[in-house]
């Protein structure tokens, strides 16, 4: 599996897939899950990231709303939150080979 975060990553967000339909979601400040990366809460530093992950993990067990909860590296830019790895760029947008499918066809604010 491709790498989610480099060691010592500065900014990270928490992602998962929704249990009911598998769609990619991001943990927000209000403890909701949004389909858009732009709504994600970004944690700076390891301690904040671990706390964010612990909050997200509660929605796996016991809340049973999402699966496969993990941290991944992001950058904060003027244009918004950017995923760092190719894998996470593809997850927040959709297949690069089918631009008509996935979030890139449905949401504003996705990036290539």
């Amino acid at each position: 599996m491709a790498q989610h975060s480099r060691k010592g990553a500065q900014f990270q967000a928490v992602t998962a897939n929704r249990l009911l339909d598998g769609i990619v979601v991001y943990l927000t400040k209000n403890d909701d899950w949004s389909e858009s990366l732009q709504d994600a809460e970004v944690a700076e530093g390891k301690e904040a990231a671990d706390a964010l992950l612990a909050r997200g993990a509660l929605f796996f067990e016991p809340k049973n709303l999402v699966i496969d909860v993990y941290l991944f590296e992001v950058e904060q830019t003027d244009a918004g939150i950017r995923a760092s790895s190719v894998r996470e760029i593809i997850r927040q947008a959709g297949p690069t080979v089918r631009k008509d499918l996935g979030k890139q066809a449905e949401l504003d604010g996705v990036h290539a």
């Binding site: 897939n17 249990l19 598998g22 769609i23 796996f60 067990e61 699966i67 496969d68 959709g94 297949p95």
Partner: peptide, 27 residues
Amino acid sequence: RLAGELSEDEFKMSRLMNGVYLQLHSY
């Protein structure tokens, strides 16, 4: 599974025996 009676770990074996994977964007 949806009712929470079956954990993901336990369900995983059953769903995989039936061709259901979790991939990048969806199942």
